[in-house]
């Protein structure tokens, strides 16, 4: 049962009371420093993936008089990946109205555990971005058990999947757990980012995930535990926090983690261990 979602609803209910009883007015001529658009770069290197993919998007400044970065400027960027002095260029893959994806097939530059990679994205005066990451060396060592079905409050039965990861405290490892459903490889009902060096975290970590009965019985599902880089972990923790506090005008502002110089975003890496459920 997602208890925190009830508390979130509670806070939102309070905010709704304020909002309903308030009136809205546009603020003109905001006395703010000029806020130019900033380029965003994201990439997550995985030795098992067929391709390296890098995305470019924009953090749009709120001031009217600003230096803009258009979608065309993103599309026309030169993107390279470098490791051990070898440099390869990425190619355009796809775009949405607000984002562009570039790729490089694994065959042209395989991503390897323990190696360091630098990605650069440039487009003349518009932006010049650079980030570096090292791929975690050892995949996660884990076991799991499945137990169920249990009844849920939504009248959907579910299975409890208990995953136990063996780690050593003090190694500063970061993990992500997921369940990949056979019906939809992108189906990710439960994904958690954590570090084994959080307070009270033991070397042996047991996490319980829930999988609905229908998906469980369909079979062909996979449990994935990713050993992720610190940058990967910190970026998604900050995204989650911004998401949780988004829409709450009274929440303490949170900074988005970045390891990209010249802009914002993240270049992270992972090694993933899979086990059939």
């Amino acid at each position: 049962m997602p208890i925190q979602s009830y508390l979130s609803k509670l806070t939102l209910a309070l905010l709704c009371i304020f909002t309903i009883s308030s009136c809205r007015k546009e603020v003109h001529n905001i006395p703010l420093a000029k806020t130019d658009d900033i380029a965003i770069m994201q990439g997550f290197l995985n030795p098992d993936a067929d391709t390296v993919t890098i995305s470019l998007s924009v953090a749009s400044g709120i001031s009217k008089n600003k230096k803009e970065i258009s979608i065309d400027a993103l599309k026309n960027a030169q993107i390279t990946i470098e490791s051990n002095g070898i440099v390869k260029s990425l190619r355009f893959l796809s775009e949405t109205p607000t984002m562009v994806i570039f790729f490089l097939p694994r065959t042209e530059m395989p991503v390897q555990q323990g190696k360091t990679y630098t990605v650069r994205a440039k487009n003349g005066d518009h932006f010049s971005l650079e980030a570096t990451t090292t791929v975690p060396e050892s995949p996660a060592d884990f076991t799991f058990t499945a137990d169920g079905p249990y009844s849920s409050s939504q009248n959907n039965a579910f299975y409890k999947i208990k995953t136990t990861i063996v780690d050593f405290k003090g190694q500063n490892n970061f993990y992500r757990t997921s369940i990949l459903a056979s019906s939809d490889p992108n189906y990710d009902p439960y994904s958690r980012y954590f570090t084994t060096d959080e307070k009270d975290q033991l070397a042996k970590i047991t996490l319980t995930m829930q999988l609905d009965e229908e998906t469980y019985r369909a079979g062909g599902n996979t449990i994935a535990v990713s050993h992720i880089s610190e940058s990967y972990y910190r970026f998604f923790k900050s995204v989650q926090t911004l998401e949780d506090t988004g829409g709450n005008p009274f929440a303490e502002p949170t900074a988005l983690y970045t390891n990209v110089s010249g802009g914002i975003g993240v270049l992270g890496a992972m090694t993933v261990s899979y086990k059939d459920l």
Partner: peptide, 13 residues
């Protein structure tokens, strides 16, 4: 900002 806030386990953006 527009970011990819949820990505597949294999990292394919």
């Amino acid at each position: 900002a527009r970011v990819l806030g949820s990505i597949p386990t294999n990292g394919n953006l």
